[in-house]
Simulated scan of single mutants.
Amino acid sequence: MVLVAGDRFAVSAAEDQMAKQIEASVTESLACDVVPPTVSNVSIGGFPFLTQIMFGTFKNIGVSVEGIPTPGPRISSVEAHLKGLHIPVKKILTNSVGEVPVDDVEATVHLDYDDVNTFLADQPGKIQINPVDGGEQVEVSGTADVPVLGAQEIGGVTTFEIRDNKLTLVPSELSLRGGLDFSIPVPGGVGELLPSVPIPVGGLPFDLSIVEASTDASGLSLTATAKDVVLPEAETRTRQCPPTDNSGN
C-alpha cells in the first residue's frame, strides 16, 4: 500500500509538471492579443509510474485542449495522447526537466456543425451543412448561378477530404431545391455550381497534421497525428507581451 500511495503521489506531481510543459507548447507562438487555449485533464497512463521514471520514458499522457485560435472555424476541443515522452531521471530528481522530446502524438479534433457553418457562411456560395441519419451522411446546400435559371438554391450531399493539411468539403449528387426539383448530372458541372471549399484547421497544438475526417450527429471528428515533437521548457516565456496598462492613461 505504501508503494502504491507513493506511486500515485508521484503521478500527481508529474501531471502538474506536464500540464505546465503542455501549456508552454500550445502558447509559445501565439500573438499577445490572442487568448491562450485551456489545457485540462492531463493524465499519465501506465502502472507502476515509478518504473517509468526510472527508465526516463513516460508511456502515454492524455490531455484536452480547448479554445484553440484558428484561421478557420472554431475548434471545440482537441483530445490528444502523447506517447513516448523522454525525461532522464536525473532531470526529474533535480527539477530541471527542460525540453521534453515526444515520439508520437495521436489526437481527435472536434468541430461542431454550427461553428463550421459560421465559417462557411462567409465563403463563396454561402454553403451550409446539416447531418442526416445521425451524422452518417451530411447534406450540403448553397446558392449557385445556374445557366438559364439564374441564382438557385442547390442541395446534395458532401464528403470531406484531406488536402494539404486542410479539410476540404466536396459536394456531389446535387439537385435544385425549391419550386424546381430535379437532379443535375454528376460529376459534370458540380465544381462550378458548388465549389469544393477548403476549411483551414491549421495552428493545431503539437504540430498535428490532419489525416482523416469522419462525421457524427454533433459535428466533425478529425484524426490528427504528429511525430518527433518537442515540448518547450515550462519556465520559458516565449510570449514577450508588454504589461497591461490598467492606469487608464
Rank of each mutant, 00 (worst) to 15 (best):
Asp181Ser: 14
Thr159Ser: 14
Val2Ala: 12
Val132Met: 05
Ile162Asp: 04
Ala213Thr: 08
Gly156Trp: 03
Phe49His: 14
Glu136Ala: 10
Val197Met: 14
Gly248Phe: 05
Thr108Ser: 13
Pro71Thr: 15
Ser218Glu: 09
Thr238Gly: 06
Gln123Cys: 03
Leu149Gly: 01
Leu231Trp: 15
Cys241Ser: 05
Glu99Ser: 13
Ile68Tyr: 09
Glu192Phe: 05
Thr244Tyr: 04
Phe49Trp: 14
Ile22Thr: 00
Leu176Glu: 09
Ile162Gln: 06
Val116Asn: 00
Gly191Phe: 07
Ala121Glu: 13
Leu174Glu: 03
Ile127Thr: 15
Leu85Arg: 01
Leu194Tyr: 08
Leu204Pro: 09
Asp7Trp: 02
Gly203Cys: 04
Lys91Ala: 11
Gly155Leu: 09
Asn165Met: 11
Ser196Gly: 02
Ser221Phe: 01
Gly188Asp: 13
Leu93Gln: 03
Asn165Asp: 15
Gly156Ala: 04
Thr118Ala: 08
Ile129Ala: 01
Pro171Ser: 05
Pro205Arg: 04
Val140Pro: 06
Ser183Pro: 03
Thr70His: 07
Val78Phe: 10
Pro131Leu: 10
Ser25Met: 03
Leu85Glu: 01
Asn41Gly: 02
Ser43Lys: 11
Pro187Lys: 07
Gln240Asp: 15
Ala13Asp: 09
Ile92Leu: 15
Ser141Lys: 11
Thr238Leu: 14
Pro200Glu: 10
Leu180Trp: 08
Ser40His: 02
His81Ile: 06
Leu193Val: 00
Gln137Arg: 13
Val63Cys: 06
Glu28Met: 13
Asp16Pro: 01
Leu222Ser: 12
Pro36Asn: 03
Ala107Gln: 02
Leu176Tyr: 06
Asp16Ile: 04
Val42Trp: 05
His110Phe: 11
